[in-house]
Design a protein around this nucleic acid. Structure first.
Length: 556
DNA sequence: TTAGGGTTAG
């Protein structure tokens, strides 16, 4: 029974009731109480703002703050701290800047604790330069300030600057702690700089941080990313206590290092040993199966996950959707789409983008377009996906049109956008359009990459302009990839040019000596020109080098 | 009372 309340609640009594309501998660009641307090003090405002953020309603926190400002009440340090937290949870850039301006206006520009919170707030909003400015303006910086700034660079995809800042921190005689180390290790991971990673590992051992679960997870992840699975395993084995995140890290490490069977064995062992799994464990194993081509098993695991009482979330869905490829999986794809619809995941950009791609790969471009057109918000990746979907289906003109629409909508293209459109041009034999498009890449401040060059080789090759394609490869400023030579070789088969075929094949054998596809392609090229001796010679060469081709199979 | 680990689309 809820006690009856007086209409004008004294502040102290109201605050007591409000705290109880917040603790039990009854925020409507907390708000009701707040409204009944005649003159709430700053503490009361802060309690309500923090409670909204803590219970996943940061938008309401911001609303309350606006109310406070409308009433021309001046915030104090703790109140600003709670609003900063709301802004970082919401990733609301505009509000974040306003709150920071307020902090300066009310004289909190030199507060270290508040400054640290603002660095983190701007980091979460991806406002790197603002985070930097806060840091530079702080008269007293502590280990949290330095860690927050380094971590800001790392999470905003600037790992190199993160490492620079880390060095600067050490030079300033601020000693990194376990939090610093676990924030900087992902930068080593990203840059695959095993040497620095090892040095930091040495620092960890020297300062007795090995038993820290965060540090250990980051180390395992770093070694696994730097292709040193043995080291990752060693760090993991030496840990005396393991939580579920650490288990998930090593699980993911096996799958991302293409050791699918080991990953599966570990997962079965975890289940057998009674390790308490969570959603992420299932997501890791489902995503691992998908990435390693074990699509049937990925779908099977999705069923097992549900049978074990877990509900697939957005991440599960985006991990399993790529397993739906080909017409025979269209039905499964539609079922998953239905699940997304029923669970309101439709608002999630990543999930819906994965659906767009799934339909395209299952052969239903119409459904793919329909889902895309119903998306309320479209980011660069969403646009890239629909462009690639059309290109895959031989709709080059449509891909070019979509590119224009993307620009009109205000989304910036990235290098993947250009690969998507160029591959559309090559599938639709749009030679002049493709070349023109290629020459415009730099207009968007993007440096053409190896994929773009390969696409042009493909465009010229498919159009039968083999000499031009060969000339283009020789003149390209980047090292030609297997993709470029492969495109040329493929076209040589169609246009029966044995001389260029040999040149392309030799380059391919240098780059990918163990790819059976290249040998088979060259052999078939000879065969198509009725050069049977040369064809079997290549088959023999393949046998001598111990390269075997796994036989293809069909569902029919 | 401010900083940290795992799973996500091309």
């Amino acid at each position: 029974m809820v006690p009856k309340l007086p209409t004008n609640l004294p502040c102290q009594l109201g605050l007591k009731f409000m705290k109880a309501a917040c603790d039990s998660g009854d925020l409507p009641r907390a708000r009701n109480l707040f409204d009944k307090i005649g003159e709430p003090d700053l503490r009361t405002w802060t309690v309500l703002i923090s409670a909204y953020t803590r219970h996943g309603l940061p938008k309401d926190s911001i609303k309350i703050y606006s109310l406070l400002r409308v009433r021309e009440i001046n915030p104090d340090k703790l109140l600003l701290l709670s609003v900063a937290k709301a802004c970082s949870t919401l990733r609301d850039t505009i509000k974040a800047k306003e709150v920071y301006e307020d902090a300066i206006r009310f004289g909190f520009h030199s507060d270290t604790l508040l400054g640290n919170a603002f660095i983190d707030m701007f980091a979460k909003c991806k406002c790197v330069e603002d985070a930097r400015r806060v840091f530079d303006d702080m008269p007293v910086k502590d280990v949290v300030s330095w860690t927050s700034l380094t971590s800001c660079y790392v999470t905003c995809c600037l790992p190199r600057r993160g490492l620079d800042e880390f060095r600067e921190m050490v030079l300033n005689r601020v000693r990194p702690n376990a939090v610093t180390v676990s924030s900087i290790l992902p930068a080593c991971s990203e840059l695959r700089t095993l040497k620095l990673g090892r040095e930091i590992h040495g620092f960890v051992v020297k300062h007795g941080m090995e038993e820290n679960l965060f540090v250990c997870s980051a180390l395992v992840s770093m070694y696994a990313n730097c292709l040193s699975m043995r080291q990752a395993q060693l760090v993991f084995d030496n840990m005396s206590q393991r939580d579920i995140v650490l288990w998930n890290v090593i699980l993911t490490a096996y799958f991302s290092n293409k050791e699918c069977e080991k990953g599966l064995d570990l997962f079965y062992k975890m289940r057998y040993d009674g390790v308490q799994l969570n959603d992420a464990s299932w997501n890791a194993v489902i995503g691992g199966c998908t990435q390693n081509g074990r699509t049937e098993l990925a779908l099977e695991m999705l069923g097992q996950m549900q049978n074990s009482g877990f509900r697939p979330n957005q991440i599960t869905i985006t991990s399993v959707l790529p397993a739906c490829t080909g017409f025979e999986r269209l039905g499964t794809g539609k079922e998953i789409h239905g699940y997304i619809f029923r669970n309101w995941f439709i608002e999630d950009l990543t999930t819906t983008t994965a659906v767009v791609f799934m339909y395209a790969k299952c052969g239903d471009l119409e459904l793919s377009r329909k889902v895309f057109s119903l998306m309320p918000k479209k980011d660069t990746v969403a646009w890239n996906t629909i462009i690639i979907a059309n290109s895959m289906h031989g709709k080059g003109e449509e891909a070019l049109l979509l590119f224009q629409k993307m620009l009109d909508s205000g989304q910036k293209p990235n290098s993947v956008t250009f690969t998507g459109v160029l591959s559309g041009c090559s599938h639709s034999l749009l030679v002049d359009e493709g070349l023109l498009f290629f020459n415009s890449i730099r207009d968007y401040s993007i440096e053409p990459d190896a994929d773009h060059y390969s696409c042009i080789v493909d465009i010229l090759s498919r159009a039968g302009r083999l000499e031009e394609a060969y000339d283009f490869i020789q003149k390209m400023p980047l090292e030609p990839t297997a993709g470029a030579w492969g495109a040329l070789l493929g076209a040589c088969k169609v246009h029966k040019n044995m001389e260029l075929a040999k040149i392309a094949a030799n380059r391919l054998f240098e780059i990918e000596p163990n790819n059976p596809g290249n040998y088979v392609l060259l052999s078939n090229t000879f065969a198509s020109a009725k050069l049977w001796d040369e064809a079997s010679e290549i088959r023999n060469l393949m046998r001598d080098r111990g390269i075997t081709k796994e036989p293809g199979y069909s569902w029919v």
